[in-house]
Design a protein around this nucleic acid. Structure first.
Length: 444
RNA sequence: GCCCCGGUAGUGUAGCGGCCUAUCAUGAAGCCCUGUCGAGGCUUCGACUCGGAUUCAAAUUCCGACCGGGGCGCCA
């Protein structure tokens, strides 16, 4: 009874229902498991959308077909045509009784990673066999949620008339320093992978585009070896003109986060359940705490702070903000100029040059976003570059945009994986990328 | 880049000088079973990362390489 199945008539498992009782349906997917009881066998067929049970009766199929169906290796691709039949004994309430089937692609054994195994698998093994790992619904769930999050962010920005742009990822100079850039051999010239679209976003403000965003990879050659760093990450960058202060940027950002998390809750229930996590939407306005006050708060809590907040301080601040303000997300504002030295385009506070108009958005102690008001006055910008030993001539392509009418502007860069990492409470940020890149991993 | 820790069947682990012909689970191969949904029962298969060293004896100790885990620094 083996035959060629017409895959054009295939229906996804999630669209099967009890209403279709008695209908002949075509399903196709991966054979997750076979439970052979002798005269009857149950196959679990999984596709992207769910699992359906194929119930095989030896008496009905004949010995040969029954044997063929029940001895296929797990994770083989299988197509089945059969009648959808109601049955209270199945957890879904229905099953498919096969009439014909086709083994489309047999899986080799043993699997390098058991999709339905009851034993744990290390992240390294999972990433080495990511295509199999992604067959697990709870792994796929992360990426369904990622998709929902990103789509909601785009929708929100589009609704505010932000224009999506794409800037080059091959650049001649970085936004900050040179040690964090990956060099690229570019037709005999030296180029780099962009660590940020910063300079281009600002040039586009000079072009009069007013409100833009870009969702693109950012590359960092920093030798960061932690559960919250990867060498290539998805960065949502926005830039907007005619702002009064960085408050305008922060207001947009907090509304963006709320909109995105609301979408995750509304559209991602199934996936959140799959992962066993609960997400709560933060209330606006997010608390703002100045960098100086954050330091005071931490010192009061017994920490010693010198210069910037270290990892322990960041985490501790996350706990304190949650305990004292009930806030999972909060802004740390007015970063000292001393700490933003290499950020030559950061505008200093007009009433205290020791401070900048720069902020971070943190989520339970992890930095999600860095942003602020940029310096749009050419002379000051050049001074700030020279202060840290940069040669303005090297940035001529950028500075030109400030000579012919540059409006006041600001923006931010947001790490998509950082949001997912904290939102889903995943142990490692690598889980939020299908094929992550870090100091040691370039394959797959 | 720095500091700790670890590498045992396909996968996840126990063992940490002789009791190891290496544990358990999962898996794979096979047999039994007509209602499984973490199916069950029986049988079988399958591993000490690599290279040196110490020792009568090394999975176990030491050194190196490679690979991995955690933390720090740096940052999204």
């Amino acid at each position: 009874m083996t035959s060629n199945v017409d895959l054009g008539t295939r229906v996804e498992n999630s669209s099967l229902s009890k209403d279709m009782a008695g209908q002949k349906v075509t399903v196709a997917g991966w054979l997750q498991d076979t439970r052979n009881l002798g005269g009857i066998a149950f196959l679990l067929l999984r596709d992207r959308t769910g699992i359906v049970q194929i119930t095989c009766l030896k008496k009905k199929l004949g010995d040969e077909s029954f044997a063929k169906l029940t001895t296929m290796p797990r994770e083989s691709v299988l197509a089945v045509i059969g009648e959808l039949k109601l049955n209270e004994q199945v957890s879904s309430g229905f099953e498919i009784l096969p009439e014909s089937f086709e083994l489309i692609a047999e899986a080799q054994t043993p699997l390098p990673l058991g999709v339905a195994d009851k034993v744990g698998v290390e992240l390294d093994t999972r990433l080495n066999n990511r295509f199999l790992d992604l067959r697990k619904p709870q792994v796929l769930a992360v990426f369904k949620l990622r998709e929902i999050l990103i789509r909601a962010m785009r929708e929100y920005l589009v609704s505010l008339r932000f224009m999506e742009v794409t800037t080059s990822k091959i650049v001649a100079a970085g936004a900050e320093g040179g040690s964090t850039l990956f060099p690229v051999e570019y037709f005999g010239k030296k180029a780099y992978l962009a660590q940020s679209p910063q300079l281009y976003k600002q040039m586009l403000m000079g072009a009069g585009l007013d409100r833009i965003y870009e969702l693109a990879p950012a590359f960092r050659a920093e030798q960061s070896d932690t559960v919250r760093h990867i060498a290539e990450f998805a960065s949502l960058d926005i830039e907007m003109s005619f702002i009064k202060s960085e408050e305008d940027v922060m207001n947009l950002l907090q509304d963006l986060m709320v909109h995105a998390l609301e979408a995750v809750l509304a559209q991602g229930t199934q996936y959140l359940e799959e992962l066993g996590v609960e997400v709560s939407v933060p209330k606006t306005p997010f608390p703002r705490i100045t960098f100086t006050d954050a330091v005071k708060m931490l010192v009061h809590a017994g920490l010693e702070i010198q210069g910037d907040l270290d990892t322990e301080a960041e985490k501790r601040l996350g706990e304190l903000m949650l305990a004292q303000h009930g806030a999972e997300m909060y802004f740390i504002t007015k970063f000292p100029s001393e700490l933003k030295k290499t950020t030559f385009y950061a505008m200093r506070d007009s009433s205290d040059s020791e401070l900048t108009n720069y902020f971070d958005l943190d989520y339970r102690g992890e930095e999600l976003v860095s942003g602020g008001q940029r310096e749009h006055r050419l002379d000051i910008l050049i001074n700030q570059m020279e202060d840290i030993g940069y040669v303005p001539k090297d940035f001529e392509f950028y500075l030109q945009a400030f000579r012919y009418g540059m409006p006041p502007h600001g923006g931010f860069g947001l790490g998509i994986e950082r949001v997912l990492h904290m939102m889903l409470r995943l142990p490692n940020i690598r889980e939020c990328v299908m094929f992550p890149r870090d100091m040691y991993r370039v394959v797959p």
